[in-house]
């Protein structure tokens, strides 16, 4: 499977990654090679095989509905790029 530059840009956009125009050809070739590798999977017929999303054959444990956390805003916001009045600030969100 080979990707073209537009596809790579589309994927980069979906993943919110800015890729310099000059680097696009490199990604095109690397990603295409990786997909070629990945497509070796097609050599094996998997009809009827159940997907395995987890190595453990276990089930979800349930947590008691208890409040165990306390306010640590100051601590957490000390490492934030931009805050004011306890809010995290980001460039204007337009709806």
């Amino acid at each position: 499977m080979s990707l073209d530059a537009d596809e790579v840009k589309k994927i980069a956009y979906l993943a919110r990654l800015k890729i310099d125009e000059a680097d696009i050809p490199g990604y095109v070739s690397n990603l295409s090679n990786i997909l070629d590798l990945v497509e070796q999977m097609n050599a094996v017929d998997t009809t009827g095989v159940l997907p395995m999303s987890h190595p453990l054959d276990a089930v979800q444990r349930l947590r008691e509905d208890k409040i165990t956390e306390t306010n640590q805003r100051e601590r957490f916001q000390a490492i934030a790029p931009a805050t004011e009045d306890g809010l995290y600030l980001v460039p204007q969100v337009i709806e």
Binding site: A82, D85, G86, L87, L89, V90, P91, Q92
Partner: peptide, 15 residues
């Protein structure tokens, strides 16, 4: 929640 339009034109986020 997003608090729009305040904070020097930035949006405030309350989680």
């Amino acid at each position: 929640k997003s608090m729009h339009g305040t904070y020097h034109g930035m949006t405030g986020i309350d989680l």
